[in-house]
C-alpha cells in the first residue's frame, strides 16, 4: 500500500516538474539573459558564465523606462479599479434582476469581447486625436475598460450566481437596504471573484501592446511593453537584448506580486456554512 502511494507520488511529482519546467523555461531563459554581459549573451549557455547587473543599471539609468513603468502601473490600476467596480454592479444586476434588455446587454458585452481589436485601432486613433485623448492616460484607460468590462462581467456574474439568494433576503429582513445588503453581505462573499477578476483585468491591461503603441507617441502615456520596443543600444552596433530582458524581468515582477498577494484571498469554500450542506 505504502509502496504504491510512494510510486504514485513520484509519478505525479515527475509530471508536475515537466509541466512547470515547460512553462517556465522561456521565463528563466529571459532571466538568465538579463544577467549576462554583452560578450557572453550569445554563448548559448543557460547558466550565465559571468554575472552582471549592468543591464538593470542601464534600464533604470534612463528616465525612459522608469517613466513607462509609472505609466503602466497607473493606467493598469485605474482601469482595473473602474472595470471591476462597474463590472461588479453590472454582473450583480445580471445575476439577480430580470430587467428588460438583459439578454441584449449580455449579448453586446460578449460581442465586444469577441471583436477583433486590430480593426478598432485606426478609428480609435482618429477619435482620440479629435478629442485630445491621444497620448494621455485616459486615452488608454478608456479602451482598456471597454475591453476588460465584458471579461469582468462574465467572471463576476458567475460568482454572484453562486451566492445563495437567501442571504440577501436575510440581510433585507435584518434591516439592510439593497445597498447595505450588497456591500456588507454579498460583496465580501464575492471577494474571491472580485480578486480573480481584478487579476485577469490587470494582466490584460498590463500586457497590452496593440493599443499602447497606436494611442501613444511620447513618454507621457507610453507603457512598458511599448517602451521596450523603443529600447536601443548605446550605439547602433550594440544589441539592446540584455536591457530588454532585464526590463522584461522587471515588468513580470508586479504581476507575480499581484497574483501572490491576491491568491491568498482566492480560497474556495468562503461561502461554506451559509446554507445547508
Amino acid at each position: 500500500m505504502a509502496e504504491t502511494t510512494t510510486r504514485a507520488r513520484l509519478r505525479w511529482g515527475l509530471l508536475d516538474v515537466i509541466v512547470v519546467v515547460f512553462a517556465l523555461i522561456p521565463v528563466l531563459w529571459i532571466a538568465s539573459l538579463s544577467f549576462k554581459t554583452p560578450a557572453t549573451l550569445t554563448d548559448g549557455k543557460f547558466w550565465p558564465r559571468e554575472w552582471t547587473l549592468d543591464n538593470y543599471r542601464t534600464i533604470f539609468a534612463t528616465d525612459q523606462f522608469v517613466r513607462a513603468l509609472v505609466n503602466s502601473i497607473g493606467i493598469a490600476l485605474i482601469a482595473t479599479a473602474v472595470a471591476v467596480v462597474l463590472g461588479a454592479m453590472a454582473a450583480y444586476a445580471i445575476s439577480r434582476l430580470d430587467f428588460p434588455g438583459k439578454r441584449l446587454l449580455v449579448g453586446v458585452s460578449l460581442l465586444i469581447a469577441m471583436f477583433p481589436q486590430v480593426s478598432l485601432v485606426s478609428p480609435l486613433f482618429e477619435i482620440e486625436r479629435q478629442f485630445g485623448l491621444f497620448d494621455t492616460w485616459p486615452g488608454l484607460i478608456l479602451p482598456y475598460i471597454t475591453f476588460a468590462l465584458p471579461l469582468a462581467i462574465y467572471t463576476l456574474s458567475a460568482f454572484f450566481k453562486q451566492i445563495p439568494w437567501d442571504l440577501e433576503k436575510a440581510a433585507k429582513m435584518d434591516g439592510a437596504t439593497q445597498g447595505q445588503a450588497f456591500r456588507r453581505v454579498i460583496a465580501p462573499l464575492a471577494a474571491p471573484g472580485l480578486f480573480t477578476t481584478a487579476i485577469l483585468v490587470f494582466i490584460f491591461c498590463w500586457n497590452d501592446f496593440l493599443f499602447a503603441i497606436t494611442l501613444t507617441s511620447t513618454e507621457r502615456a507610453r507603457t512598458v511593453p511599448v517602451a521596450l520596443s523603443f529600447f536601443t543600444g548605446e550605439s547602433q552596433f550594440e544589441d539592446p537584448t540584455g536591457a530588454i530582458c532585464a526590463a522584461a524581468v522587471v515588468i513580470t515582477i508586479p504581476i507575480i506580486l499581484f497574483v501572490l498577494f491576491f491568491q491568498r484571498r482566492i480560497v474556495s469554500g468562503l461561502t461554506s456554512g451559509a446554507v445547508k450542506g
Binding site: D166, L167, M173, G175, T177, L189, L270, T271, A274
Partner: peptide, 20 residues
C-alpha cells in the same frame, strides 16, 4: 413598506447565515 420598515424577522429554510 420595505422589509426593513416592517420590523419582522425571518428564519429561512436554508438558515442563510452570513458565512463571513
Amino acid at each position: 413598506k420595505a422589509p426593513r420598515d416592517r420590523d419582522i424577522a425571518m428564519v429561512f429554510q436554508s438558515y442563510a447565515l452570513y458565512p463571513n
